[in-house]
Design a protein around this nucleic acid. Structure first.
Ligand SMILES: [Mn+2]
Ligand SMILES: [Mn+2]
Ligand SMILES: [Mn+2]
Ligand SMILES: [Mn+2]
Lengths: 154, 154
DNA sequence: TTCAAAATGAAGCCTTGGCTACAGATTGCC
DNA sequence: GGCAATCTGTAGCCAAGGCTTCATTTTGAA
């Protein structure tokens, strides 16, 4: 309002994307974030059942590094949302919907780790970073990753 | 407790990492998540100031796709944590700490987009996915990305 | 100078996902 | 069969990050 910056303002360097575009991108990231915990739980539950035969709340909590009460509350959301069922002292079980999600999530997790590793990231760091990254890899990017892996020796 | 799965249990297929290792990884992801919003805000504020001369709460909110009240509350956390200061109707300003963070965050954002693009991800998808991925790329992975970019044509 | 539009910010509500503390159920060992 | 250890689950607390509503301030144009 004091300095005449009209020229600057109207020739806006185009370094920033359009407002709507950017808002949409942030919105997508927020959506992905909202499902991240669900994805981690179903993947872990499926892993525990596959390798150990059962997935008890206590085991889930210990593997996630959270208090057991936290795990129980989250599991109740999983049940509410149709991803799991549970029988006290018998463990948590995935519904068909839960297994389907776990399957997709695990495949994505592995592909992300694989690509990171191919890019020169040490295995354990790749595994750690993938735990966060995986939730934000869209289907298109996932396809690009798969193509890259297939293109180059795996 | 009924079927004898001792053999299965003690020869645990080693598909899962150790409990502590896995808990640690999830913990790192939770930590990274906790700073994601701060990172997006400071990066955006810095962009707005650079390209438009000012960063008003309303502009920030519109670009993020959130209500202005949400932006204001988050900005107050930014101020509380020493990343920003603000003068009503004059916009938000980054502290030295804020600018430093913005700088790192922007560099990381760009490198992530660059690598995704090199991997065959379309520009706009790369830009969208990077908005989430960026927050989980550790320094080691970032270095690997930079090396990859330099190694191959950029 | 007036005044309507725009921006600001506070208040209060919600859900998620953390936590601790406590109560109750089950298991499995002796 | 009993009992201690383990597991489960509830209750209640907290902060973050969304939201809407409303009051107030500032701006800028007439
Ligand atoms: Mn994960
Ligand atoms: Mn995972
Ligand atoms: Mn981001
Ligand atoms: Mn970013």
């Amino acid at each position: 309002m004091d300095d005449g910056d009209d020229a600057i303002r109207q020739s806006a360097p185009a370094e920033l994307p359009g407002e709507d575009t950017q808002a949409h991108r942030f919105g997508l990231a927020r959506e992905a974030q909202a499902t991240a915990v669900t994805e981690d739980y179903v993947e872990l539950i499926d892993d525990l059942i596959t390798t150990g035969g059962e997935a008890r709340p206590t085991d889930i909590a210990r593997r996630l590094g959270v208090a057991h009460a936290t795990a129980i509350k989250t599991i109740s959301r999983l049940k509410r949302d149709g991803f799991a069922v549970s029988r006290p002292y018998r463990g948590v079980f995935l519904t068909e919907q839960g297994r389907e999600l776990a399957c997709r999530v695990r495949a994505r997790h592995r592909l992300v780790v694989e690509v990171l590793t191919m890019l020169g990231v040490p295995e354990d760091v790749a595994e750690a970073d993938a735990e966060g990254i995986e939730h934000f890899v869209s289907p298109v990017t996932l396809a690009a990753f798969a193509a890259y892996r297939d293109r180059h020796g795996a």
